[in-house]
Design a protein around this nucleic acid. Sequence first.
DNA 1: ATATTAAAGACTCTTAATGTCTGTAATTTG
DNA 2: CAAATTACAGACATTAAGAGTCTTTAATAT
Lengths: 133, 133
Amino acid sequence: MRYSNATNYALHTMVHLMLKPGGSSVGVQELAEMQHLSPTYLSKVLTKLAKAGLIESTPGAKGGYKISRTKHEISFLDVIHAIEGETSLFDCSIHHEGCLIENVMRQAEENMKDELASKLLIDIAKEAESNQK
Amino acid sequence: MRYSNATNYALHTMVHLMLKPGGSSVGVQELAEMQHLSPTYLSKVLTKLAKAGLIESTPGAKGGYKISRTKHEISFLDVIHAIEGETSLFDCSIHHEGCLIENVMRQAEENMKDELASKLLIDIAKEAESNQK
DNA sequence: ATATTAAAGACTCTTAATGTCTGTAATTTG
DNA sequence: CAAATTACAGACATTAAGAGTCTTTAATAT
């Protein structure tokens, strides 16, 4: 069981966009180059983020992607949900309801989610920025 | 990202073995029937549990599997590690060390593991037993 | 000896993720 | 208006992992 590569790319892209001064748009080419990916592939990841409302896209020349105006506080969990979906890590297909094992697994997953929901991308972005100086 | 079916089978099998009076051995046929699986498939799951030292196997007639004598307190995490391995859920293949994003993801995973390590199979087994009465 | 059982390995099938390629629509620039 | 740039959508191919089956071998009890 592993998080997808797409999730990793998405997280790094989001942090990068947050560090863009003035919230200016960045094209997929620049974003792809930074992570050594093909633009067409990263494009699919970015489309997912846009559909989730985490970023805004503007087509056409001088277009690109930028952090959504309406979403200033984006957590790790937001990004993960946008890419991986919101299905549970564990499903007991044996018992139909109230499986005790499933209950434990779900609770553990909640603990992980709580942590991911409490971590905001902006904090990581600022930390990365100050480290670079 | 999802936990494998094998992990689900393993957890249910372990609970079942814990409820066996006197810690007597159970053959793979009975265990497979209970979960509607083929014995050959479940056998591979059981072999993993045995190699991890969680259960003991005795070949030959009247053989089978039983909870390991030396391991009375088996946690959910023990079983998961036996089946899924101990690799991290998240690996940042972009940065080589000290990736801030990876740090967050690892911490969240730790929170989940802490919960899974604190839950013992024997407690679930006893709860299931009392529910049945 | 024979029946029973675990163990190991080769093998197939399915599914999901990864990634590429092509074409289309929208927007800016000249 | 024309051309260049860019996001978007969908079809397609490739790869990797999981799920599951089958066959053979080794060990144990009766």
